[in-house]
């Protein structure tokens, strides 16, 4: 529940303020970065829930097809969480790296999904903005991760060893 306000703010800001904004060919995606950072701070299951909820919020606010954004963000949150639980655990560059990679994958996923739904998508435009947007996401992640770490000081979904098994 601690992540709910953060998600709401990120989703509202994304839809109201940042939607359609371009900064030097980059399209900022604060919600994606927030989901990635929540997942890195709290784990894969909270990350997946955060992605799903954030996606639903966006789809509701934009009156778009429900579920399209949440599929992408759910998978993004899950992958970021798994990365944080395994390879990226305790690494300083993990947020930036995860945000960079997931931003590109999420962009491609959104294009593919909208294409499958028969909605008009500009794949060329998405490809042009993919790398700058990923760089911007990496930069944003360095700031957002501090916020999520502070808010989620006791990671809820992180797998902690509760018992030791001797083999």
């Amino acid at each position: 529940m601690r992540i709910a306000p953060l998600l709401l703010v990120a989703a509202v800001v994304q839809v109201t303020v940042l939607g359609g904004t371009r900064l030097l060919w980059a399209e900022p995606d604060l919600l994606l970065v927030t989901v990635v950072c929540i997942a890195l701070s709290a784990g894969s299951i909270p990350g997946a829930f955060a992605g799903f909820a954030g996606g639903i919020l966006v789809d509701v606010m934009t009156l778009g097809t429900l579920g399209t954004t949440s599929i992408v963000l759910t998978l993004a949150g899950y992958w970021a969480g798994r990365y944080g639980e395994t390879t990226g655990r305790g690494r300083r560059y993990a947020p930036a790296l995860a945000a960079f990679a997931i931003s590109i994958l999420a962009g491609l996923g959104e294009v593919a999904l909208h294409f499958l739904l028969g909605e008009p998508v500009a794949a060329g435009d998405a490809l042009v903005t993919a790398i700058p947007s990923a760089i911007l996401a990496a930069v944003l992640a360095l700031g957002v991760i501090r916020l999520t770490d502070a808010m989620l000081s006791a990671p809820q979904g992180l797998e902690r060893a509760r018992q030791v098994e001797l083999v």
């Binding site: 299951i45 829930f49 996606g55 579920g67």
Partner: peptide
Amino acid sequence: PRTTASLRRRLVVGGLVLLSLVLVTVS
């Protein structure tokens, strides 16, 4: 417990993705 957690993770993600797909289809 490790396997249980892994299964739970997959179930949750699978469920959420499935729910999203259902929402997409219905919507």
